[in-house]
């Protein structure tokens, strides 16, 4: 029997619903149409007094039912408590599909839930579809982005975490008379205690995830001074700065902004590679970018092979001139 699609509505530390939820909602409505309009449901944990603010988001994004856990304890995320309550809910409502955003929280929670439910989980998907047998076909990059794999799950619920920013959010496009079901939350113990949280020290990581424009530098930037020029260009473009492992290893840039195989995978609209040779360890992290431009003085550098537009020239000359042009109204 088809029991629908369940979505995890992540509440951020600032008490808003993470945008990835609305992206999941949009995709889930599309999948539901291929599953005889199976219901689309959400599960949410919140501190008291927030539901009035949240309700509209659900009614406007095609959600049929929301299971709400409301308690003072839920002002902060807990792996163990959330896992316990979610698994109990899933055992009761038996959804066919359960989708979670591939955020820090989602990637912490999802494997804990799937293992407890003894079901399968596909990580960090970038495409979801329903195959001819009515199964969830979840596609994800693997081997550092060099191979795509479409994965099916034999057990229910078929679970997947989904990378933020790959689907369009469903704001105000799919109105539903959403039913809100409040669930009890009792006897909650946790073996982890949050002692302290410092916000934003790590802003750069966050910025790389959401940036539409990234200006990145390699070893050829020659030092921290070189990265200051890139920062200036990024500021002029309204973007942020990234670096290759080579530049990080040389101490030109902090490792929090490292892009590539052992760093971040980024998907901006525009990626400008400055003095980056383009080793595969770096390029695997950037090929999801919509546009890649590069500036390099070596015309044979492999970065040109993955760039839409490549300038053979000296970054220390080209970049300052570009900044000047951008600043001139």
């Amino acid at each position: 029997m088809g029991n629908g699609i369940l979505l995890y509505a992540e509440v951020t530390r600032q008490s808003y619903i993470h945008t990835v939820f609305f992206e999941l909602a949009n995709k889930a409505c599309e999948l539901s149409a291929k599953l005889n309009n199976a219901p689309v449901m959400a599960v949410l944990f919140t501190k008291p007094g927030m539901m009035e603010d949240y309700k509209e988001g659900f009614t406007n994004s095609g959600i049929d039912k929301v299971f709400v856990f409301e308690d003072e304890k839920f002002s902060k995320y807990s792996t163990e408590i959330y896992t316990k309550l979610i698994t109990e809910l899933v055992k009761e409502i038996e959804p066919d599909i359960f989708l979670i955003g591939a955020t820090n929280q989602g990637r912490d929670l999802a494997p804990r839930v799937s293992s407890t439910l003894k079901t399968g989980l596909t990580a960090d998907c970038i495409e979801l579809d329903i195959n001819e047998k009515g199964m969830l076909a979840a596609t994800r990059p693997t081997f550092g982005g060099q191979l795509m794999a479409t994965i099916l799950c034999k057990t229910k619920p078929q679970m997947a975490t989904v990378r933020p920013k790959v689907f369009k959010p469903a704001f105000d496009i799919n109105y539903k008379n959403t039913e809100f079901i409040y669930r009890p939350a009792e006897n909650l113990t946790d073996r982890v205690e949050l002692v302290d949280f410092v916000q934003g020290l790590n802003d750069t990581l966050n910025e790389l995830d959401s940036a539409e424009i990234i200006v990145a530098g390699g070893k050829g930037m020659k030092g921290e001074e070189g990265f200051k020029i890139l920062k200036e260009l990024a500021d002029a473009l309204g973007g942020t700065v990234g670096a290759t492992r080579g530049a990080v290893d040389m101490g030109y840039a902090p490792h929090t902004i490292q892009i590539g195989q052992t760093g971040k995978t980024v998907t901006p609209k525009l990626y400008i590679a400055c003095a980056i040779s383009g080793a595969i360890q770096h390029t695997v992290g950037i090929t999801g970018s919509e546009h890649i431009f590069c500036i390099n003085n070596d015309p044979n550098a492999p970065i040109f092979d993955v760039s839409d537009t490549g300038i053979v020239g000296d970054v220390f000359e080209v970049v300052p001139k570009l900044i000047e042009m951008l600043k001139t109204p």
Partner: peptide
């Protein structure tokens, strides 16, 4: 992504 936690 949003900051640094100290946990026990």
């Amino acid at each position: 992504d949003d900051g640094i936690e100290t946990v026990k």
